[in-house]
C-alpha cells in the first residue's frame, strides 16, 4: 500500500507567555492508504494538535510532512487550502454546521468553495446525503435535527468532495451512546470503501475497534498497536 501520511521528526511548539509548550515532540509516523487508525492518550497529550497538523489547519514548528506523496510543509497558504479541499474531510466534536443553512446547503459548502458547477453539486450532495440515510432531511436546518443526524450531516459534508483522508476529533464526544455507535459505524463503512480514517477518541472501546491504535503521551507516540483484520493485537514500533 502507498503511504498516505509520512511524518518525519515533527515538532510543534506553542509559546504561552514566557513558557514554551512542547505539544508534539518528535513524531515519526507512516500511515498507509486505507488504514483505520485511532489516536488516544491523556488530555493535553497532543492528539488534537496532531490531527490539526495532519489536516493542514496547522503547521509544524519543524519536521517534514508528506501527504499523498506531496511535501506539504513547502506549500503556501492557498495550496494548503486547496489540498484541504481536495484531499481531506474533517469531522468535529461539535459538528460545526452553519445554523442558517439547510442540511443540503451545509453539505454543499466544500463543493461551492471548490467552484464546482451547481448541477454536479446537486447530484453529489444528494448522493452523500442518501448514503448517510439523510435523503429526507435535506431541507432541514441543523436545529431541526438530532445530534446523531447533525453529525451525519457533518460526515456527508466531509466526504462530499470525495477526499482520501477523513479526520475525526472525538466525533462521538457530544452524542449519546446509541447515536455515537451509529456515527462510528458510518465512519468505518466509509473506511471499508477505501478512505483513510483517523479518529481521535477518549473512549477505549472505540479506540480498540481500529485496526491500529496510537497512544500519545506528552507529545510522543507511546504505543502503536496493530491488529490484523480478525486476529489478536500485535505490538509494533
Amino acid at each position: 500500500m502507498p503511504a498516505m501520511i509520512e511524518l518525519e521528526d515533527i515538532h510543534r511548539l506553542f509559546r504561552v507567555g514566557e513558557e514554551t509548550v512542547h505539544a508534539l515532540d518528535g513524531i515519526d509516523l507512516r500511515i498507509d492508504t486505507g488504514e483505520y487508525v485511532s489516536v488516544m492518550g491523556p488530555s493535553g497529550s497532543g492528539k488534537s494538535t496532531l490531527l490539526n497538523l495532519l489536516g493542514l489547519l496547522d503547521r509544524p514548528s519543524s519536521g517534514r510532512y508528506r501527504l499523498a506523496g506531496e511535501d506539504v510543509t513547502a506549500m503556501n497558504e492557498a495550496q494548503r487550502a486547496d489540498a484541504r479541499n481536495r484531499l481531506i474531510g474533517f469531522v468535529f466534536q461539535s459538528f460545526h454546521l452553519i445554523p442558517r443553512l439547510t442540511a443540503f446547503e451545509n453539505v454543499e459548502l466544500p463543493m461551492i468553495l471548490a467552484g464546482i458547477d451547481p448541477a454536479r453539486r446537486h447530484e453529489q450532495v444528494q448522493q452523500a446525503l442518501h448514503s448517510l440515510g439523510l435523503a429526507d432531511r435535506a431541507r432541514h436546518k441543523p436545529d431541526q435535527l438530532s445530534g446523531g443526524q447533525r453529525q451525519r450531516v457533518a460526515i456527508a459534508r466531509a466526504i462530499v468532495n470525495r477526499p482520501r483522508l477523513l479526520l475525526a476529533d472525538e466525533p462521538t464526544g457530544n452524542l449519546d451512546q446509541k447515536s455515537g455507535h451509529e456515527v462510528i459505524e458510518t465512519l468505518e463503512a466509509l473506511n471499508r470503501q477505501g478512505i483513510t480514517l483517523i479518529v481521535v477518541t477518549h473512549d477505549p472501546a472505540l479506540g480498540e475497534r481500529a485496526r491500529r491504535a496510537l497512544t500519545l503521551v506528552d507529545g510522543r507516540i507511546e504505543a502503536d498497536i496493530r491488529r490484523p483484520a480478525n486476529g489478536p493485537a500485535t505490538s509494533g514500533a
Partner: peptide
C-alpha cells in the same frame, strides 16, 4: 470555511 478549503 477554512477547514473546508477556503483560502485567505
Amino acid at each position: 470555511l477554512k477547514a473546508l478549503g477556503a483560502s485567505r
